[in-house]
Simulated scan of single mutants.
Amino acid sequence: MTDQKSPPRAKRRGRETMRQAIRQAMLDELVEHGYGDVSIEGVALRAGAAKTSVYRYWPTKEDLIIDALEHVLPSPEGHESAGRIRDDFRAAARMMARSLAEQAGNVLMTLVAERRRHPAVAEAVMERLIRPRQQAMLELLRQAAARGEITAGSASAIPVLVGSGLLLQHFMHHGTAPDDEQIDEYIDQAVMPLLVRPEPSGPQD
């Protein structure tokens, strides 16, 4: 008699196709069950993969979670400045809003809610997902300072934290990501006032 709890026999498929199925299964399991009740066995069963296949690529549950999220979040690398820092913030905020509107938003909120019970995974999310994207935005601020658009002192983490924090707060309070008009309002009322323009040079007394 076949064990009813055994995972279905995996179909022949390419390695990357299988890995993507496992990543998606992890995201689905997180949304449905929460971090504490997710198991590699359950993920493998959902993906139609062997448990050994999961462990071959991801030694821990945290590794799989981070990798799955990295594949659905915008990459922090390769962002080129539009030449105006307001446009840079708008582009970054809109990408973040699109991610929040999709499954990644619910997954991130699930992990944030588990922070006190499972601090290791919350710190992994911060270290490997959130901070690299904050650093990418900070680099755009530094470029704005270098071209004289803002002062060097304005190129700090504070505007980045304010901008991303407002988007997350909006998502937590409303259950939806802000639209473009709301994003512009947040940037113009909360972020841009933090970015000080250099004083124009004038004749010396």
Rank of each mutant, 00 (worst) to 15 (best):
M109V: 07
A157L: 09
M1I: 00
L100F: 11
A155M: 10
D28Q: 15
L108M: 06
L194P: 03
H79D: 14
S156D: 01
D205L: 08
Q4T: 12
E102Q: 10
R9K: 10
F171Y: 15
S75Q: 09
Y57C: 04
V112D: 07
D205G: 14
V72M: 08
A104K: 02
G36T: 07
L69V: 10
D87E: 15
L161H: 10
P203T: 11
L100Y: 08
G202Y: 03
I150G: 04
M172K: 14
V125R: 09
S164P: 06
M109D: 02
A50N: 13
K5I: 08
G42F: 03
M137W: 07
D188W: 11
A44D: 11
V191I: 14
D37S: 12
S81W: 03
D87W: 06
R94W: 01
S164N: 12
I66A: 03
A146C: 10
S6Q: 13
T2I: 15
K11T: 06
A10T: 06
S75P: 02
E77G: 06
V31L: 14
A68R: 14
G48F: 03
E185T: 09
M137Q: 11
E32C: 00
R15Y: 08
I183Q: 03
E127W: 00
T110Y: 02
E77D: 15
L168D: 04
S154Q: 01
V72G: 09
P8G: 04
D184E: 13
R46A: 11
D28S: 12
K11H: 07
A44S: 06
L129A: 12
M137C: 10
E80H: 09
G153H: 09
I158M: 11
L141S: 00
A10W: 01
K61A: 13
S81K: 00
V72L: 06
A97Y: 00
S75R: 06
Q169R: 15
G78Q: 07
K51F: 03
P7Y: 02
G14K: 13
A93R: 02
V196C: 08
A113G: 13
V107I: 08
M192W: 11
D188H: 07
A145F: 04
E16M: 10
V54M: 02
Q103T: 12
P74T: 07
L111C: 05
I158E: 15
A146S: 13
E139Y: 02
A91K: 14
P159R: 01
E139I: 00
L108T: 04
E102F: 04
E181T: 15
E139R: 09
A101N: 09
L73F: 01
A68L: 11
E62W: 05
M126K: 10
G175T: 03
A104S: 06
G105K: 07
E114S: 15
P178H: 09
R9I: 14
A157W: 08
A21G: 10
K51P: 05
N106D: 15
E185M: 10
